[in-house]
Structure formats: C-alpha cells, structure tokens
C-alpha cells in the first residue's frame, strides 16, 4: 500500500498540473476575446479597407477577405483548444479529488491506530 508521503507527492503533482491547465485555459480565454474583438472590427470595415499584418518587424498588406478568414480560422482553433483543455481540467480535478480522499482515508486510519495510548 502506498504511504502517505507517496500519495501526497502524487497529489501535489496533480495539483501542479491542474494549475498549469487552468492557466492555459485563461490564456486561451484572453486570446479568444482578443480575436473576437478583431473579428468584430473587421466586420465593420469597408471591403477596400487597408489591413496590415505584423510579421516580425514588418507590416504586410493583406486582403480583407484573407484577414477575416484567418481570424475565423484562429477562433475555430481556439474554441477546439478550449474544449480540449476543459476536458483536461475535468480529468485532473477528478483525480485530484480521488487522491485527496485516499490521503484522508489513510490519515484517519493512522489516527485511529495512534489513538489508544
């Protein structure tokens, strides 16, 4: 049977992973809203508006249709990523809860044994 030490190490590990995916989720959220804002902005522009894309240190002129398509594609991708990360968050929280319960269980048992003195 695993010791409390091992279990709590595993628990800490899962917590760390959970933290990481939550941060990833927040970053995706931020990117999503930024892209949404750009999409909204593009929708209000005239078809012949001058759009430039920053590539490295240079601004490259881009077609409006192309730019709109690009942003839509990015939004699609981010949506999928968010779904994927959501799944991970769920998995990690479940395993973390399970580990926590295991640790509690063992601690209770140990306390029960230590009690009669």
């Amino acid at each position: 049977m695993a010791t409390v030490q091992q279990l709590s190490d595993e628990f800490a590990d899962i917590q760390k992973k959970l933290q990481d995916v939550i941060e990833a989720r927040q970053r995706l959220d931020a990117q999503y809203s930024e892209n949404k804002a750009v999409q909204k902005e593009f929708a209000t522009l005239d078809a012949d508006a001058n759009i430039y894309k920053l590539i490295g240190p240079t601004l490259i002129k881009q077609d409006k249709d192309e730019a709109t398509m690009n942003v839509n594609k990015r939004l699609d991708f981010i949506e999928k990523e968010i779904k994927r990360i959501e799944g991970q968050i769920k998995d990690f929280s479940e395993t973390s809860e399970k580990k926590k319960a295991e640790i509690m269980q063992i601690q209770m048992e140990q306390q029960g044994q230590a009690q009669p003195t």
Binding site: E34, V38, E41, N50, I51, Y52
Partner: peptide, 12 residues
C-alpha cells in the same frame, strides 16, 4: 493613421 486592432493586425 494605422490602428492596432489586436492579434497583430493593423487597420488604416
């Protein structure tokens, strides 16, 4: 003017 609308796009 050129306006930074986000995600690397600039609009005149």
């Amino acid at each position: 003017v050129l306006v930074d609308v986000g995600t690397g796009y600039y609009v005149e």
